[in-house]
């Protein structure tokens, strides 16, 4: 909370220093080019989507909504996104806290892990999970060596198989904001709580978590919204029978050859995620924490 307060006071100071006598030409030259860029690249594809959706016979929107695969995919996607968000945010908080309070070797290991995941592509990280989850892959090898399991795994191309890979891909988005929030945490507040007799749980609940809450919320919103539109991980790990929304849309275009229905679904998906994002943004000021 304190960081956002400081940001606001800086902003108001900047505004007070700025004045009505600064030229408007300046604002126009700086503002209009990116706005036009956005308008073209956001509005034109949207219009094209609507056109595409309306070229089909009948009402493609109701057709899409009444499709069994679509309804199943919506349900699966929402559950997946929700679970991944909760797990990612909790793990992200632990991860960042561990970097803050750990001994040096843990700090180094965790930073190295974070950098590996930031610097390798989503594709490569998903391959890693694929190779882990294959029936006779690395996970099976490890379990076999530990004599915990002798028959091949059937995790690959199942819904549960998507979860660890999705969390792994999303985790940096939760760790980074929490790390930033922790670095501005007031150590004297923690000390004060400790001196007044607060135990570790109370310190975490009363001092640390409130300081991290804005970061956790904005990370959660971002992870949730991005998880709704995820493509690569479900495609490689979920397989054709466990498609998420992205997969269904993809299938409409590439397999069913129904670009109109795919476009209708795309509009629904965009509408859903953008509405969710806008609501969360107004409620929690997510953009202000990112921007």
């Amino acid at each position: 909370m304190s960081t956002s307060g400081a940001a606001v006071s800086v902003a108001t100071r900047a505004r007070r220093r700025g004045s009505k006598t600064f030229g408007t030409a300046e604002r126009h030259w700086l503002l209009w080019p990116p706005l036009i860029f956005f308008a073209l690249l956001l509005v034109v594809p949207l219009v094209a989507l609507f056109q595409q959706a309306l070229t089909g016979q009948g009402n493609t929107f109701s057709e899409a909504v009444h499709m069994d695969v679509f309804a199943k995919a919506v349900e699966r996607t929402l559950i997946l996104a929700a679970v991944v968000t909760v797990v990612t945010v909790i793990l992200g908080a632990c991860y960042a806290l561990a970097i803050a309070v750990g001994p040096v070797w843990i700090k180094v290991t965790l930073m190295a892990g974070l950098l590996i995941s930031l610097w390798t592509s989503v594709m490569v990280r998903t391959f890693g999970w694929m190779l882990m989850e294959l029936p006779t892959g690395a996970l099976f090898w490890a379990l076999d060596k530990l004599q915990l399991r002798s028959e091949p795994l059937n995790l690959y191309q199942t819904t549960p198989g998507m979860y660890p890979a999705m969390v792994a891909v999303m985790l940096p988005f939760a760790v980074l904001p929490v790390m930033a929030a922790l670095s501005s945490l007031d150590g004297e507040q923690v000390d004060a709580a400790t001196i007044f007799g607060a135990g570790p749980l109370l310190v975490l609940r009363a001092v640390v978590l409130p300081a991290l809450r804005p970061a956790l919320v904005s990370a959660g919103v971002l992870v949730f919204v991005m998880a709704l539109g995820f493509y690569v991980t479900p495609l490689l790990l979920g397989g054709p029978s466990n498609m998420t929304l992205s997969g269904v849309i993809n299938a409409q275009l590439n397999n069913a050859n129904r670009a109109d229905v795919g476009a209708a679904m795309s509009i629904i998906l965009i509408g859903g995620t953008v509405v969710i994002y806008l609501i969360a943004d107004r409620l929690f000021k997510v953009s202000e924490r990112w921007g």
Partner: peptide, 8 residues
């Protein structure tokens, strides 16, 4: 960032 890449 929030727009699903597939739909876009």
């Amino acid at each position: 960032m929030a727009i699903p890449p597939v739909a876009y």
